[in-house]
Nucleic acid binder design. Structure first.
Lengths: 193, 193
DNA sequence: GGCTAAAGTGGAACCATATTCCGTATTATA
DNA sequence: TATAATACGGAATATGGTTCCACTTTAGCC
């Protein structure tokens, strides 16, 4: 018998994470554990076997979302040229921030169970954007006086600012900001987006 | 029969607010309602008669503290000269901020039951400091390029910054800041505090 | 394939809290 | 003092987290 989780257990873990993501989006992070268990089609006992505390489940969902966002960087880098990859990732990150509003509140709620997530957040996301940014700078399509931190902060800020009426406003603002990143480069004669 | 609350009811309300203040300070804002009821010497039913929801009790305590802090301004204005009144109130406000750390967290926890408190906070505290500030400026003991917002923000900031080891550090920093307020005025030849 | 131990499962039971309900007690007026 | 409006206490109910354990499934082994 090996150390890896049994196939059925892994199946349930996946179902739980998926269900939790959906339920959190619908009912917020305060949704009852029972509701998530039901949606995943498992018993409550199963939830607690894999996530001893409610906060562990929340953290796992968040961590998975962080991973997905970070992993998107490499994929975008493959599929697009450096500037497009960078901008697309910024939009991707904005989507992440927007969706995770509720989770972020939980993060800052003082529950120390979430402390490790803060570190994880930086550990995964900073390198992701940094690689994209460095590529774009190296090729000369983005100015060299910005760093990863600038971008993460700016996008978060743009997400927070205004989102009431006009749909897609955040997207447009991020696109504008991205254009600002290439202002003054040798490629700046391109048509602005 | 008049519309005013009965004497015994008022007595219980007062006892509850006082007990809640003490319990929140000791056990945090998440303390059980029962604990507060017990400390106040009343039944749980009584708590809920006056504060239909747990958050109503928290809000009432906070509001009362805001009032006390705001009301202190007029009293200080009576008892001291303009500059001293201003500085003393800043210290008073700092004490308020320090004590209410836990409540402030609750405030920002996303529970919309606390939204009105934000407005109340500004509505009461801004005028309080503004009056003191204007008096001090009018008499020429404080420079005229600062406003109420500056002071509220600065004190909050100073409270947050460092509080670990040295006791009274915040007080000293606020005193320093207050001295900065009178730097360059005609009264600036006074001995610095 | 059948056997067995380890791993996993469901959900009832338990605990802690918020909140409701209502019979009883108190208060304020006439 | 009588009595109607108010208020009181606390048992009962509702809700949600967490534990427990008898039962089931899986994976290695023959």
């Amino acid at each position: 018998m090996d150390r890896r989780v049994r196939a059925d257990a892994q199946r349930n873990i996946d179902a739980l994470l998926q269900a939790a993501l959906a339920v959190f989006a619908t009912s917020g992070v305060d949704a009852p554990v029972r509701e998530i268990a039901e949606k995943a089609g498992v018993g409550i006992g199963t939830v607690y076997r894999h996530f001893p505390q409610r906060s562990d489940l929340i953290a796992a969902v968040f961590r998975r979302e962080i991973d997905a966002c970070a992993d998107a960087a490499a994929i975008l880098a493959d599929e697009h040229d450096p500037f497009e990859a960078l901008e697309h990732w910024m939009q991707r990150y904005a989507a992440f921030v927007a969706t995770k509003r509720g989770l972020a509140t939980a993060l800052h709620s003082g529950n120390s169970a979430f402390d490790p997530l803060h570190a994880y957040f930086n550990q995964r996301l900073r390198p992701a954007i940094q690689t994209l940014l460095e590529s774009a700078i190296a090729v000369g399509v983005v100015r060299s006086d910005v760093d990863a931190e600038d971008i993460l902060g700016a996008v978060r800020g743009l997400c927070r600012a205004a989102d009431d009426g006009r749909p897609g406003q955040t997207q447009r603002m991020i696109a504008l900001f991205a254009d600002g990143l290439r202002y003054g480069t040798k490629a700046s004669t391109n048509t602005p987006a």
